[in-house]
Each structure stands twice: as structure tokens, then as C-alpha cells.
Design a protein around this nucleic acid. Sequence first.
RNA 1: GGGAGUAUAGCUCAGUUGGUUUAGAGCGCCUGCCUUACAAGCAGGAGGUCCUUGGUUCGAAUCCAUGUACUCCCACCA
Length: 873
Amino acid sequence: MKVKDLTDIPKAYNPKVVEDKWYKYWEENKIFHSEVDESKESYTIVIPPPNVTGMLHLGHILNNTLQDIFIRYKRMKGFNALWVPGTDHASIATESKVIAMLKEQGINKYDIGRKKFLEHCWDWTDKYGGIIIQQLRKLGVSCDWDRLRFTMDDHYYEKVVEAFVKLYREGLIYRGYRMVNWDPASKSAISDEEVLFKEVKGKLWYMRYPIKDTEEYLVVATTRPETMLGDTGVAVNPNDERYKNLIGKSVVLPIVGREIPIFADEYVDLEFGTGAVKVTPAHDVNDYDMGQRHDLEIINIFNDDASTNSNVPEEFRELDRYEVRKKVVAKLEELNSIEKIEDYTNKVGYSDRGGVPIEPYLSEQWFMQMDDLSKSALKVVREGKVKFHPHHWIKTYEHWMGGIRDWCISRQLWWGHQIPVWYHKETNDIYCDVNPPEDIENWRQEEDVLDTWASSWLWAQDVFTSEEEQKYYYPTDLLVTGPDIIFFWVARMIIAGMKFMNDIPFKDVYFTSIIRDDKGRKMSKSLGNSPDPIDVMNDYGADALRFTVNYIAPLGQDVLFSSEKTELGRNFANKIWNAARFLLMNAQDVELDETLLNKHIDFTDEWILSRFQNTLQKFEKALDNFDVNGATKIIYSYVWNDFCDWYIELSKNRMYSDDAEVKAAVLTRSLSLFAEMMKLIHPFMPFISEEIWQLLDERKEGESISTSDFPKQNVELINETAEKEMEFVQDVITAIRNIRGEMNIPPSKIIALYLKTESLSQVQQDYIKSIAKVDELVVDKIIDKPKASASAVVRGCDIFIPLEGLIDLDVERNRITKEINRLEGMMVGVSKKLSNEKFVNNAPAEVVEKEKAKQTDWQNSIDKLKIILSDLN
RNA sequence: GGGAGUAUAGCUCAGUUGGUUUAGAGCGCCUGCCUUACAAGCAGGAGGUCCUUGGUUCGAAUCCAUGUACUCCCACCA
């Protein structure tokens, strides 16, 4: 054992130099690479592939740090750990970005055609797709970069197509003319999950529809007056007395002049509006259903960009939906057909990606039948084969899976996996296969591509490119993702796993918190409250950010983040750095020797090892239960409070000893424990732990803490006797510090101490003397209180500090009185319990004993303090 | 209209199966300290009706119920 020769160690930790250096080292030495190895158990995580359009944000930081923590922990525990990285082609998101980019150059997608457009998409992917991957390296993630995957890689593409063909042949994928959510911006269908409902302040228009052959009219209320151009009926509730006589009659549609029936349908709510509903089967889901029930005509009035088509009167054609709304309302007012207009707030569905209101729209689409597919996926989660953390997300999952509807998987886009279906040019026959038909000239391929999620749902199984690998690594162990994509991705991956692999895709799912700003608001570009993680890492270090985010992120609750909070992690890194610096500097000229590990041992050594074991146990338990936040706190308090505040301080006695062997022994021990500590830190703060671990001893080329053995639990090192001895010393020192503090006795002032107890070991006495700056320490069972002294009672023992000339009697009286009051307050509770017969009779004997012991101890202390107080008076 | 979560110190949160916690931590605040690892630090201190009201129990921050407040998800009400 030999520490690195160091001439100058910087006083403050500088992450910049350290972090880049080690990441390079890890990559060069392929520390994160994994190969199939049947002699070892695998531990696998697949990264939630970020979009190629994406930039790193704080959500990624939390998410990827968590994955890295688990993968590094398991790697050190001896698993063959593999973390597969990759990116998602993100069909609609990327396509709209490329369209926008081309638009700036005056280029239109349709003008250049599919082939050329896709080239632009690939260019975009090559140019921007790697950014986020590069940014992740800065965070220190231990992905196996030799396995970087993309959802449009050849192998992956084939697998997506294969899955489609298989499901099509089983009749689970079908084509249908249906009402879908239409995004007029991208001119594509989107799935139900991609629709976000927003509250929008709008109006409710009451419109008069003249009843045929009468002077009367029927008033209908609507939020979308323009759709009246496509009305083909008016519905009322069958039980509505107001309109009973009108059922079967018809109205004449204003502007259009079309005669449309009045009919009865249970769907209509008597309370809302006028109780009469205009029905537009082509542009509203409910209206469509009513149209089907009552055999109404379906008139589509919109083009695919939601402008009006030739099915409306000429003067209203080729207008945007909001333009035509104004025009229709104006016209109706002119015709005196508007009864009134009310303010009304309703929920409008917006396209998640396009950002514009979606349009219910009838079109030919491909659907996946989800009913049967979802059954086994629901079962494995219910049975706990796939476990959710926090567990309560299971309810959300069950709810969605229970009411699952068919999935619209076709998109009228070009960037993505083109649907492997060909239509015969003459017969219109359908051909579906992984390979195109041989007489390709007679066929034309389906233009549509698949929903992005209909490719990424295979991520957990098809990032592995050989059967051997798939068999070895699948099922993966852990998925870390946000609860916002539980339906989009998590559920569908489980479905795909059960369908194509007949096995679950992962054993545990960790749902991360949502990062908000320090006021609890969502991070957003427009608010400018979203710090760039790269800046934060430059300012504070990647380790600091990683540690901080986890320290403040409880499982399942939002994280309130601001850049300044990263000081917590930075300060901790600096603390670790300085503790290491202290040991390393002292070890420079010392002959370290591992045979000294068990020499010159005292209770403080036993205590710190005992505490380490205790910490290790709690740490592993926390991580095994996915309580990452808890693990950060456990390690933080051990390093800072136990190791730095107490152990290092106490070790100085021997560190500065004249006996070289004593010094060497204490340093050897501290350094070797420090190396073990670094291993617990490593999953959270990989860079600083590697840096220090490398300094602590001579390491071979290519060696890394990442692949070192994680500390093993050893119950034999738990030492209660040592802990008791230590606690007594700590309490005495704390009591003295308290007196010093409250009496304003300078730390430099050396004091005497009288300790009234049977006996106290010489080592304990020595530590008390050095830490508390005591020169004369008297320990005896018979001690008379010296004159003008401050006092305290520690674990039943009187302690006195003679302070002739320094003591302020008022302050001392206050101190003692405060302590008596505190103890008496506690006594009230205990006495009440013990005088309660029911408690004494019913509570377990040991609990009663404990309470009695407390009572005796406290009473004892109170008595002593009272004597002290009366002496003062 | 359904469902989920949260409420503990000025702020952000811990608090393990009810009694080992005298309700803790970080930040902030107050008072001392440049004590030869660390001022990004050390030491001491102040600060809490554990959201309300009931219930279960010998015993409740902890379990149950009710209410209140905030957050989020799902749902086709024109």
C-alpha cells in the first residue's frame, strides 16, 4: 500500500480537470463494456432513448443519474452490468423540426418528395442526434457506448416491421375508416394518448334553426358554430317534454338550406344549453356515434389542414377553421339566427407535438387491437412479476389497461418505419410481409409510417442484435422513466414483451420525480426557469449535480430545484476532497503497511468500523428498496458526521504521535477505510471517488474503482461496546462545548475538568482532553464541586469545569434551569405512562422496563442538577 | 365525473412494521471561532398546536374515518 506522491493538492476540489480526465480513461479502457458471460449473472438496463431532437434537461439528469447509480452499484457487486444507450427517431417531433428548418430555406416537403426529404431527416439526425449523447457523457453515465442504438438502425427497423407483419397476420392489426384525432399542423392522425386537454376560454353560441313549415325555431347551443355547415341532424332527449312534439320533424339549416331531421337520443343532456344538440357526424366523436345510430348523412367539411372544402357553400370555402367560424357567426347574425352568446370555458384537445387543437376527423387508418394483447401485460404487473416503484402507479396502469382502446398506429408522415403493406394497383389486394412483393411494379406501398411508440415498444428486446445476447440479457432488470410515459411506453413495452418474447421486459420500474423550479412551477423555456444542466455542471461539477438532485428527490414526489441548491453537492464533494487531502498529505512520508491494520487499535477504530458496517447495511437496504434518496442521506451523514467530524478529529492524537509505527497504523487504517467509503460514494459521485481511489494506493493501468469489489457486510465488526464508549466521550465533549459556547469561553482557553464517575479508561480520557482542550482531568467517584464552576450531568455523571473569574452566575443558573425544565418536561410523559395501570399491565415488559429506566435516569439527573442549582443560589 | 398523491421548524424535506427520537437533516437565522484537511469550514444556539375534528389503542406524527387545502392523471358532455 502506497499513496501517490503529491507535492501540491489544491485546497478546494476542482471538478473540471478531474471529470474529463476520468471519463476519457473509462472509455479508453472500456470499463463499461459488457459481453455475454454465462459464468456471471447479468444486470441490464436499457436507457429510455432520448429524441434525436432533444437537448439535455434536468429531467434527463435525474433519470440518467438514477440509472447510473444502479448500474454502477451492481457492477461493483459483481454483476455483469450492461447499460444500453440509444436514441429515438421521434417520428413526428423530428419531422416537424425538419419541416421548419426546410421552410426557412423556402423548401416544401411535398415539392422535394419523400426520398429527398428523408435524406434531410438523416442529415438532421447525424448532426443533432449525437448532442444529447455527448452531453450525457459529461454527466458520467456508464453506458456501453459500443452498443449505441437508434430506433431506425437496420436491425431494429427489421424487427419493427416483423412485429407488424406478425400482428397483421394474426388479425391484431387492421385497417379501418374511423374517426381519429387529427393534427392539422402535421396533417397526420395521432393516438388518444398524444392529445392533451387544455381549458380554453371560449363562447357558447345559441343558434336558431327554423323548424320546417312553421314560423318557429329550435335553439341549439354549440362551442363550434362553424361545424354547422356539416350538420345533418338535431338531437333532443326522448324524455324532454319541451321537444317531444318536435321529434320526427325537421329543421332547415340556416346558410346551407339543408333540411335535417330532429330525432331523439339518450345521449342528450336535458340540463345543458337548450337541451337540443346540433349533430355534425363528420366532426365530433359523439355526433359520429349518434349519426351511426340514426343513420345520418356524414358530411366532411374540412381538408386535411382543417380548412374548409367544397362541401360548404362557395363563399365559405378554403378558409381556416377559425376564419370560417367568424364568417359563419357574422352571417348568422345577419340572418338574425343568433339568439345569444355566453362566455364558456371548455376543454379543447391539443396535439402534444403540433401544439394546435386537434380535429376529430374521419380517415383511413391502421389500428392495433389492444384488448387481448393487454391481458397478460396486466396480469404480470398485478402478480408482481413487474414491480412498480412507487407502487401506487399500479393503479394508474390498471385503470388504463382496463379501459384500453384500439391504438391508431399509422401516421401520415414520412420519417419513421414505413408500414410493410402493399396495395395491388388494379385489384387493390393487400399484401403484407417483411419483404416487398416480387412483382413490385404492380404494387404501391402504403405511404404511412408507424407511430414512434410502435417502434420504441420493442426497445427492451431488440437493442440486442443476436439471439444469444437477447437470451442472456433479456429480461432486463430495471427501467427508470417518468410516469408521464406510463401509457406511451411502459405499458406497451410490457405488452410487446409478453407478445413477442413471452416474458416481461424488465423486473422493476422506477418512476422518477418531476423536476420543478424552486417555486414549484414547471420548468419551461418561456418562463426561463429551466437551468441548462451543462452550465450547472460547469459551475458546480457533475458529481455535485448528481448528488444534489438525488439528495433532494424523494421517491414519488416533485423535486424543487434551483442551481444554487447544487452547493449542497459541491460542498459535500469538497468535504470529501479535504478529508482525503488531509490523510494523503500526512501519509506522504509515512511507510504504510497493511500488517499494521490490526495494531495500535483503540475503541475509536472499532467504533468507526462498527459505524461503517451499520452504514453499509442501511445503504444496501435502501438501494435494494429503490430508496436512492435515503441512500444519499445515509452516506452523507456517515462521511461528514462520523468520519470527518469525529474520527478524523480523534485520529489526530495518534497522527501526530512521535511513534512512527503508531502514525503509520492509524494512517493505513484510515486510508483503507477511506477507499471503502469511496466505493459507497462511487455510484453517486463517480468522478471524485475515482480520483481519490486512484490516489490512495498504487493502481494498475486500466484499473478502476468502477470494477473494484464493493465492500462486504461483516456483522462481526458491529461493536456495541465500542459504540457505548464512544458515545460517552461524545456526550462529555458536547457538554463541554455547550458550556463553552453559552459562557462565551474562547476555544483557545484551556480548562480543567472534573468528572464524577467510577472510572474511565485512559484512552477515553486522552481523547476528551485533546478535543475539548482540557489540561487537567480528574476522574473520581467522589468529587466535591469546585467553587465557581460550570456543571452538567452526562449519562448520570456530574461534570464540573472550574471557571474562577470567567463564570457568569446568571448564565450558569439559566443553563441549569433550562436543562432541569427540559428533563422535567420529559418526566411528565414518562410518569404519566408509568402511573397508568393499563400501560404497566398491557405493554410488553421490555417497554415498561425501558420507561422505568428512563424515569430513574432522568430523575437522577434532575436531582443532581437541583443540587447544583441550589449551590449557585 | 372518476382516480392518485401531498400536508411535520422561516424554506425544502426525513421520520422505517404504533413504544429506541428527548420529533431529525440541509438551507436560512443568531453567537463565537481564519483550532496547521476543509470559511464550500468548525463549534454552540434559537425555532415545531406533526393541516382540522373524531375514532381505534395502555400508548398515535405513525393506523382508521371525516373535513379542508394544494398537485397531478384519466374521462366524448354539445
